[in-house]
Design a protein around this nucleic acid. Structure first.
Length: 330
DNA sequence: CGGTTTTGACCGGCGC
DNA sequence: GCGCCGGTCAAAACCG
């Protein structure tokens, strides 16, 4: 992975809570210095700028507007686009990486203004096919459905289906943005600071692993997430978030940084992912960081495999961008 | 006892 | 029209 200067693999632990890229609260609350690559200076891919780090939690509960997020993912908010990042390079299974960001902004938009992304097969890449089939492909189909169905099919959220039925035909509903991550973990439901209630579980076609459906327990918050395990690589967990939280992160309310390691918060959780999704300096479509880069910067070994969990981020930089192809609306 | 999980049923979209 | 599939509902079970 180090062959790719833009492929940064990060394995981290916070000693109490795992977070996804973007996850967590205000960066200032972190014990560790939040880091992101300096986007302004493409030649310094290892230069990190703590001040501009954006957590997913912030993103999800709205401190980061969708336009910003879209720009981070290199997508226009005005068009529905889907970026699937199932990629693992040719190193295939040897790569121990593992959070892949999939930005799936799903906004209601004119049919002619759609952009979807197809994921070309990657040689020797189990994760590629994995996510493509177990996650990416399905998401793609779902997204297509989202795009195609303008009568509020996916607008149910916390509304009942009956309510949805009552929705006037043709009434457009704003599609919630989606973000998917692939995480290498033995824990399916990675803690992100929010409280979730499981409301469904479905068997996934061609996969021995079921897909779990969660909904944010906060009232009037319609954020949902799906968690499924890759059927080709059982160590890969595909998490898809849909929507943005309209409230603060419950964990954060417990007291800024202390929640990260507080035994009162997720006491049973082992040290887990404490990572930041980074924005490659030369690509605004992929987000990633490597443990190497991280360690080099922090002189700290964040690689952790103890307690059965191993986390990384992966995405694609310049070299990896090849598997992301924007598909023009047909 | 309240919140969460489980799980079979149901619904709507889509392809044939 | 029918079957498949993903997503959701909701009652029952479970749990702290």
């Amino acid at each position: 992975m180090s062959d790719n200067p833009f492929y940064h693999d990060y394995m981290g632990t916070s000693g109490g809570i795992n977070t996804f890229p973007f996850f967590g609260e205000n960066p200032s609350n972190y014990h560790d210095q939040p880091i992101i690559p300096n986007i302004q200076n493409p030649n310094h891919e290892h230069q990190f700028v703590p001040s501009s780090y954006m957590t997913l939690t912030e993103c999800l509960h709205g401190s980061m507007d969708y336009n910003t997020l879209s720009s981070v993912f290199g997508m226009s908010c005005s068009s529905s686009s889907e970026v699937v990042c199932p990629h693992i390079d040719n190193q295939g299974s040897t790569r121990k990486s593992s959070v892949s960001a999939t930005a799936e902004p799903i906004l209601d938009s004119p049919m002619g203004d759609q952009t979807s992304v197809e994921v070309p097969p990657t040689p020797n890449s189990s994760i590629s096919s994995t996510s493509n089939e177990a996650g990416g492909q399905e998401d793609s189909s779902k997204i297509k459905k989202h795009m195609q169905n303008k009568d509020g099919q996916e607008g149910r959220d916390d509304k009942s289906k009956k309510e949805c039925k009552a929705t006037k035909k043709g009434e457009k509903k704003v599609k919630e943005p989606r973000f998917a991550f692939m995480t290498k973990s033995e824990i399916d439901n990675l803690e992100d600071g929010y409280r979730w209630r499981k409301y469904g579980q479905k068997a996934v076609k061609n996969s021995p692993f079921p897909r779990n459906y969660y909904r944010c327990t906060t009232q009037k918050c319609s954020v949902k997430k799906r968690v499924e395990r890759s059927y080709e690589d059982a160590s890969i967990v595909i998490t898809t978030y849909e929507g943005q939280h309209n409230h603060h992160c419950p964990a954060a309310l417990r007291g800024n940084a202390s929640f990260l390691s507080s035994p009162h918060f997720m006491p049973s959780f082992p040290p887990q992912l404490f990572s930041q999704m980074l924005i490659p300096p030369t690509s605004n479509q992929n987000l990633l960081i490597t443990s190497e880069a991280y360690n080099n910067i922090n002189n700290n070994n964040y690689h952790q495999q103890n307690q059965g969990s191993e986390y990384n981020l992966f995405g694609g930089g310049t070299n990896d961008a090849s598997w992301i192809q924007k598909q023009e609306p047909s």
